[in-house]
């Protein structure tokens, strides 16, 4: 048969593309900054576990509040934010710089499907780094307190609820930040400026009036925090939204951003000499 191949459904094509792009995102030289970011909390916590500075402090109470702070300050605001920026911007902009994006645009797939596949690939790649990372950090935080305290925390204490809250927050953060950076990669030739502005916007969350807080990712992520954070500069001066509303807000916002990306993909032009 001439003219290439059986007609297949969109879903298998989309999943194939997502699988290929997630592997590329994880195994290319552009993934190195993501692994370096992920190594930061792991190495700090591993050092802490080795030297056990709080081993004799009261049970698991100290790490519980510490991990709450650590997840929001370090994991979500730093590792997940910049990790997503690296992965999702490179899905388009990186391929443009590598001059390989055209291979995706000469496939028998609609542009919207190609970019949906790429986004899903980025999501899979990011989550396959961030979720194990979160679990690893959680484990290392509790390790200095001994296996007895750990098992009691995990199996009869707050462990499962905390883990569910943090992993949900990371899942939704990756979805939302990923959608934002992916869209930025499609619209902007120089993504550093929008990334910087977005970082400033997110960092300003505690100081924003409630109506503007609702337009930040970080504010919605606070709803999944199982441990209340202490007041201070991180204080959220508005009641956290219910988790279902935060989920709808983050997923809906991501969908809006991805709709803009889909619209942009139809008119995206490949001109490597200009990029």
């Amino acid at each position: 048969m001439s003219g290439g191949g059986a007609r297949v459904g969109l879903l298998p094509q989309l999943l194939t593309l997502a699988r290929q792009d997630s592997l590329r995102a994880l195994w290319s030289r552009r993934a190195i900054p993501v692994y370096l970011l992920a190594a930061m909390p792991l190495s700090v916590l591993a050092l802490r576990a080795v030297f056990r500075p709080w081993a004799n402090e009261g049970g698991t109470g100290a790490p519980v509040s510490m991990i709450g702070l650590g997840v929001h300050l370090f994991m979500l605001r730093f590792v997940v934010f910049f990790g997503c920026a690296t992965i999702f911007i490179n899905l388009v902009r990186g391929e443009m710089l590598d001059r390989t994006l055209h291979y995706r645009l000469v496939l028998p797939m609609r542009r919207e499907a190609v970019f949906a596949g790429k986004y899903l690939g980025g999501l899979a790649a990011a989550l396959s780094v961030f979720l194990p990372l979160a679990l690893g950090c959680y484990f290392l935080l509790h390790l200095p307190h001994g296996f007895d305290a750990m098992s009691s925390h995990f199996f009869s204490g707050q462990g499962p609820r905390e883990l569910l809250g943090y992993t949900t927050a990371i899942l939704l953060a990756t979805t939302a930040y990923g959608a934002f950076f992916f869209t930025i990669g499609l619209f902007s030739r120089s993504p550093l400026v929008p990334v910087g502005l977005f970082l400033a916007w997110e960092a300003a969350t505690p100081f924003l009036p409630p109506i503007l807080k609702a337009m930040t990712v970080w504010y919605h992520l606070m709803s999944f925090n199982p441990v209340p954070l202490e007041n201070g500069v991180l204080a959220v001066m508005a009641d956290p939204t219910p988790t279902w509303l935060a989920t709808v807000g983050l997923v809906g916002g991501s969908a809006l951003l991805l709709s803009a990306a889909a619209w942009r993909s139809r008119t995206l032009e490949i001109n490597y000499t200009l990029d």
């Binding site: 003219g3 191949g5 195994w27 590598d98 001059r99 000469v106 496939l107 797939m109």
Partner: peptide, 21 residues
């Protein structure tokens, strides 16, 4: 109409670029 178009068309760019690995 890429679904039909790119079953009929093969394209080879001038750029010598491939995915890592």
């Amino acid at each position: 109409r890429p679904n039909e178009f790119f079953r009929q068309v093969g394209y080879c760019t001038q750029y010598d670029s491939f995915s890592d690995g």
